[in-house]
Structure formats: C-alpha cells, structure tokens
C-alpha cells in the first residue's frame, strides 16, 4: 500500500515576483504563482516562453535573480530560493520528485535499481530500498520487470520507472518536464493515467510542463506563459464556466 499525502486547498508552493535572465534573454519577467497541496498544474507556452525555467526555479534547480519560492513543509515554510546548493539538493532528494521527457534513467542499472536510487541517496540500505522501489513498480504495473535494464523496456514502461523513482522517497511535489513528449498518444495517455493516479489521487502535488493540450486537460489548472510572464491561469471549473 503506497502512502497518502496532504490535503487540497493548502498553499504548498508559492512563487513571488520571479525574475530570471540568461545573458540578454529574460526567461522569467516577474512570475507569481501559488500551488495548493494535492493540486495538479500544467504550465504551457511556446518554446522560449520560460516554462522550463519556471519549473527549474520552483524545484530549486535554478536560483532566480529576484523573487522567492516558498515551500510549505511539516517543519514550517522553507524559502527554497534562499537555500544553499546543498540545501536545495537535500530538498530535491526528500520533498521533490522529477520526471523528465526522456526518462533520464541510468541505462546500466536495472528498473528496480533505478527506482531505488533516491532512497539509497537518503541512506536507506539497498535491500530495503529495492524492496520499497519494487512495490512502487508493481503499483505502476511493472511487476516482474524489476530486473530488466532500461534498454529492455518500452518508452512507456521506462517512464513508469521514472515516475516510481520520482516518488519512492516520499516526495510531496512532483515536477514533470514534458513527461509524454517522447511517447505516442496511446502510451501518453497510459503514462498520464499512471502519473495522476500516483500523485494527485494520493494527495501529492503535480506540476507538469507540457506542449500537449491533452496532457494539460488532465490537470486541475493550466497556467500559460508568454515572454516570461503568466498570461492566463485557468482551472477546470473556470473553463467549464467559459463553455457555459
């Protein structure tokens, strides 16, 4: 049985006035955003609109030039953007999980070893880590595939391993960067089913960067960026009202 997380409508991740530039290019030009616990948010926009930079800043991979990111934890609020490199790495090991477009799994390791890596990085003994990782793989429909290398899995199966790896250490917020970008539409739907079922359905928060309207439609809220600014933030409820 996999663990359940937090409750909806509690602000879990809050960004205020984020600014980030790369040389002369402004990737974020004052982004403010609040994401509730258990919410799923799709970040959309054209290439170069700043969506991946926003995800990286929210996740503590990149430090903003100005503005702050705050994470609500059991021990109280943490200013992610003010933490040291080591502090942010620690946060990524414990509180955040990541799913990338290409999976970015370690090709030499087996599926269960890949999924167990975050737990081992947190100091859990290998046998226990692999046992826990195996239960996640089974929950995601990969029972019996634990000892396969990544090259022996299909794209969809590899993404499920990545989903397991992202959550195995008990992350409360999952960041997914184009998680279905390398998959066909049928496999995309399966992977999104697995991602939603293992995150928001269990009270975890999901932040997805995507170009795919179909993927965005599966999320509770869609945030659109243009030139580093939020130009639209629409929930499923407001979209329904628009239709009416």
């Amino acid at each position: 049985m996999l663990p359940q997380h937090g409750s909806m409508n509690t602000p879990q991740l809050r960004a205020d006035g984020l600014i980030k530039s790369y040389g002369d290019t402004t990737a974020l030009a004052g982004v403010s955003l609040s994401i509730n616990s258990g919410e799923s948010v799709a970040i959309m926009g054209a290439s170069g609109s700043g969506k991946t930079t926003l995800l990286h800043v929210l996740a503590g991979i990149v430090v903003p030039d100005a503005g702050a990111v705050q994470l609500a934890t059991d021990a109280g609020p943490v200013i992610v953007s003010a933490l040291s490199e080591a502090g942010r790495a620690g946060l990524r090991r414990g509180s955040f999980g990541f799913v990338f477009q290409q999976g970015l799994l370690i090709p030499e390791l087996t599926a269960v070893e890949n999924a167990a890596i975050p737990l081992m990085l947190n100091g859990m003994p290998r046998a226990a880590a692999q046992q826990h990782a195996a239960s996640w793989l089974a929950a995601l429909g990969l029972a019996g595939m634990e000892d396969r290398r990544i090259g022996e899995l299909s794209g969809g199966q590899a993404q499920r391993v990545a989903i397991a790896r992202a959550q195995v250490a008990g992350a409360s917020v999952i960041f997914a960067d184009e998680p279905t970008g390398a998959l066909d539409s049928h496999t995309s739907a399966d992977v999104m089913d697995a991602l939603i079922a293992s995150t928001t359905d269990r009270g975890r928060t999901l932040v997805v960067v995507t170009h795919d309207e179909g993927v965005a439609a599966r999320c509770g809220r869609v945030v659109r960026l243009r030139d580093g600014r939020i130009v639209q933030s629409r929930t499923a409820a407001t979209a329904e009202q628009d239709v009416k």
Binding site: A59, I61, A86, A89, G90, L91, R92, R93, G94, F96, F98, F100, Q102, L104, L105, I106, P107, I117, P118, L121, R165
Partner: peptide, 12 residues
C-alpha cells in the same frame, strides 16, 4: 544527461 538527472534527483 545522466549527471544532470542525478543532480536534479538531489545527488550531491
């Protein structure tokens, strides 16, 4: 790519 992914996972 592998090193970047490990960094994002929080591997020091």
């Amino acid at each position: 790519d592998l090193y970047v992914s490990l960094d994002r996972l929080g591997m020091p």
